[in-house]
Design a protein around this nucleic acid. Sequence first.
DNA 1: CTGAAAGCGCTTACAG
DNA 2: CTGAAAGCGCTTACAG
Lengths: 347, 347
Amino acid sequence: MKRRAKVSDVANEVGVSVATVSRTFNDPKAVRDDVRARVLAVARSLGYSPHPAAKALRMQRTHIVGAVVPTLDYAIYARMMNKFQERMNEAGYMVFMLAAGFDNSKLYEPVHQLISRGTDGLLVVGKIEDDLLLRFLKERHIPTVLTYSYLPDEPFPSVGFDNYESMRQLIEYLLLLGHRDIVMISGITRGNDRQRSRAGAFQDAVAKSGIAKRCHALERPYSLYEGAAAMRLIRSEYPKTTAVMCASDVLAFGVLSECKKLNIHVPNDLVITGYDNQDFSALLDPPLTTVDVPAGDMGTQSAEALLAAMTGSSKVASVKLKTNLIIRDSTAPAHATSPALAKDVRG
Amino acid sequence: MKRRAKVSDVANEVGVSVATVSRTFNDPKAVRDDVRARVLAVARSLGYSPHPAAKALRMQRTHIVGAVVPTLDYAIYARMMNKFQERMNEAGYMVFMLAAGFDNSKLYEPVHQLISRGTDGLLVVGKIEDDLLLRFLKERHIPTVLTYSYLPDEPFPSVGFDNYESMRQLIEYLLLLGHRDIVMISGITRGNDRQRSRAGAFQDAVAKSGIAKRCHALERPYSLYEGAAAMRLIRSEYPKTTAVMCASDVLAFGVLSECKKLNIHVPNDLVITGYDNQDFSALLDPPLTTVDVPAGDMGTQSAEALLAAMTGSSKVASVKLKTNLIIRDSTAPAHATSPALAKDVRG
DNA sequence: CTGAAAGCGCTTACAG
DNA sequence: CTGAAAGCGCTTACAG
């Protein structure tokens, strides 16, 4: 079994001190050109790379960051994390991903463990609603960036979009199309600021329009089957409903598939909207009106922000990303509205 | 800023040596009951946890493992990794995930880097087809487990299923239904033993049935749009096709959505099959015949195998997991076949 | 049952 | 430009 090469192995073979070997890598211009060249050559031939634990111990930096996401089993997070990792790797960092569930009020235990294992920085999806964790991060001065939501008033910089505003726009569009009996299916709002913002946008808009009594809000876990089940409930409990707004494309997919079973025609009998603009959404039948979310961008820019926070000099600014309302046939104004109106909204 | 507590902080406050503090955690019965209690209490109040880098340096074990998956952006891998992580965390390990693409012949560079960063063990999706990496893992004696494919002849233990056999069964079923003009759309086979096995099962089966000339195989990256595009090609190039077999549900979803656009009725005009049994597959219209893959199980059992490989005593046995043929309406024998025949195949 | 001391592999202030 | 030495925080063989 071949032992891992260490600085002293390289130093011995070249005939210099370990200090010189170390400098070759960490402060190259401090060592004479020909010596550096010889060290590099030997290091290469021995397959030397610095022992990460030794380096981390000495430098008090692990070059590891933690990323707290609700789950990996959701395309948007997966895509975001792919990009985040890519950028962090480029910068010499490794990323520990922690799938911690959707409730950010119970983050202390898992995240504390993550940090105890040694991380230089932290990325968290959404607002941290766990005071214990908030205090811990502050005390220990852990560089932290929030992502997914744009949260200018939080104690940490954030890279994300405006969940409230994007949902509000979508609702305005449905109101413009003439819908007044609307049901929203959001995700579980406890410990989840994104879902709360989206559900809140709905409540506010229907209240403002004086149609709160005709509208209803449901909370369901993200899943196709929950979407389908919710649709059955809507059909029996709120039969006058003309529009179902889902806070995720996955829920909308479930609703749509149930409509097919129930022989409810979309969009003629019922209009459906989603959120996320997943790949499949354009290929559903009918294609889904939804909100496009810049997952990849968010990953890259979150990495940028975290790197800045870790170098630590100046305060890192939050970044507000744009969403796009994508109007497709699942809300096509079948009879109710004129093409002119639809065009007006699109523009 | 609160400094992180270390052994000497605890030792000082309790009035014992660092050795005793260390023993309290690593060899509790070697320290007197009352002393241990006092140490524990102080450690707790100081929020002490051993510095991971120091511990790793001293023990020459990081308690970190690497997991090499093609991408996180695929439900099956995500679900598998969720379970793998869960089990590894329980056992005191952290998991570094590396999204390394689908071509396992180009794994050396990224995996070498991963290992240089310090990992006690390695999980790899599929067969490693990179000789450089194979040699490196052997030389350094890195405990390694392969997953996804059951590979009894590889130099490392594997936890997975039989891609060839499961696809063969599906083809037999289509042949039994009377299909003779069949197109398979597989993923890219280069550096991917799973796709090669599935494509190989197809080639062998149609050759054996003497219908190779009437059948065709396409290779496409995993994506909805590639599936849709492939369907357009099938329609124009192979118009006699009565069955399209896809090596993933995602491709099948794309094919199905294109059929809808082209006014091809499934299953009456064309029969479609997938592979993976993703959540959405049962909710497509029509629901998709596919192969159910035990993603969660695979994750847990891979963790078990890797833990065993790292304790290292005995040789770890490979585990063969079962797949299930799930027959749904996308292959409903519309006119061609009798219910009796279908029943026969299901049983 | 307990403590003093060595050493894991690295980096860097200090002296030359 | 280079080297000897200290020290990052831990664990454990050794001595008592």
